[in-house]
Amino acid sequence: MLYLDYAATTPPYEDVITAVAEVMSTYYGNPSSIHGLGVQAERLLQQAKESMAQLLKVSAEELICTSCGTESNNLAIKGAAYQYRHRGNHLITTQIEHPSVLGVFRQLEAEGFRVTYLPVDSAGTISMDSLVEALCEETIVVSTMFVNNETGAVQPIAEIGRYLKAYPRIIYHVDAVQGMTKLPISLGEWGIDLCSISAHKFRGPKGAGLLFCRKRDPAPALVSWRRPRTRLAIGYGKSSSHRRYG
């Protein structure tokens, strides 16, 4: 069979399959446990985060492990909106986002947030003029995808991020699930505050995602719990989106 649906998912590399099998059979401890197996699992988890941090040129402390792109999107958008609601209640996204993003904004809209859905042109991209026009004193979150999952249209995330640097009160989220590893991305230079990633889009395992959260802002938390070692961690529930993303 010739598989041509790489935009939906990719087959994992053989090395990935071997690594996952080894971890599941040998290092299956809960990384929150204080016994030997738990400590080993936590070490491997930290190593994985440090490897990704090097690739993304960020700090490992700025990476939050999730189960998929849907969870990363939900955590990023809801967390930022709830956390900074005291600054304002206006959110901006586009009309062509993945359901895991659009569903979140519709939910927030029902909760009293005001949402602007930017239109796209014939090429499937938004214009900077429409974004600038939509910004206001109440804007607290701007969320755009990197690459559209159906059309392949690439949004001007670098231009948007650089422009928003003049608005430090606004949190900029990018859904980079379809674009990561396919196109260059610079989280620091482009001023991206939150970035969603899913491993199975680039030959990794399903059920593994990341959320980049810039260190200048507290990590968005929907549920919190305390570890036995008295360190605060983030707990994640199931996504509220009606369609899983990654």
Rank of each mutant, 00 (worst) to 15 (best):
I160V: 15
V147K: 04
I160A: 07
V147T: 05
M145N: 02
Y167C: 10
S130K: 01
C195Q: 04
W190Y: 13
V115D: 01
G152I: 13
E133P: 00
A158R: 08
T125N: 11
R162K: 14
G124H: 05
Y172N: 03
K182H: 09
P156R: 00
G124E: 04
K182L: 15
V120A: 04
I140L: 07
V154D: 02
A176V: 08
Y172V: 02
D175W: 04
V142Y: 06
I126L: 13
V147H: 01
C195L: 04
I157Q: 03
I157T: 12
E150S: 10
V174R: 02
E159D: 15
Y167K: 12
C195V: 08
A158Q: 12
K165W: 07
I171R: 04
T144M: 11
E133N: 06
E159A: 15
A176K: 00
I160Q: 03
S143F: 01
D175R: 01
E138A: 13
A176T: 12
G191S: 12
P156E: 07
D129M: 03
A153V: 10
M180V: 14
I160M: 10
T139G: 10
D129K: 09
S122T: 11
G152V: 10
M128Y: 06
T151L: 11
R162M: 13
G161I: 09
I171A: 05
G179W: 10
I192D: 02
E159P: 01
M128F: 14
I185V: 15
G161P: 08
V147S: 01
A153T: 04
I126A: 01
V154A: 01
T116D: 11
L135A: 06
C136S: 14
M180T: 08
I157A: 02
F146M: 08
Q178M: 15
P156D: 04
P184Q: 07
A166H: 10
I126H: 00
M180C: 11
L187S: 09
T116E: 07
E137W: 03
I126R: 00
L118V: 02
K182T: 13
E137S: 10
R169P: 06
G124V: 05
L187W: 06
E159K: 14
A134N: 04
D129R: 02
C195G: 03
N149E: 14
E159L: 12
I185H: 05
S143P: 05
K165Y: 04
L131V: 14
Y172T: 01
M128C: 03
I185A: 07
P168I: 06
M145S: 02
M180F: 15
V177T: 12
A158N: 10
L131A: 07
L131E: 10
E133Y: 08
T139C: 13
S143G: 06
E137V: 12
A134S: 14
V142D: 05
Y167L: 10
L164W: 12
S143E: 07
G124T: 07
G124F: 11
L187D: 07
I185P: 00
L183T: 08
A166D: 10
T181M: 09
C136D: 13
K182E: 11
Q178R: 09
G179P: 13
A176R: 01
D175E: 06
D193E: 07
R169Y: 13
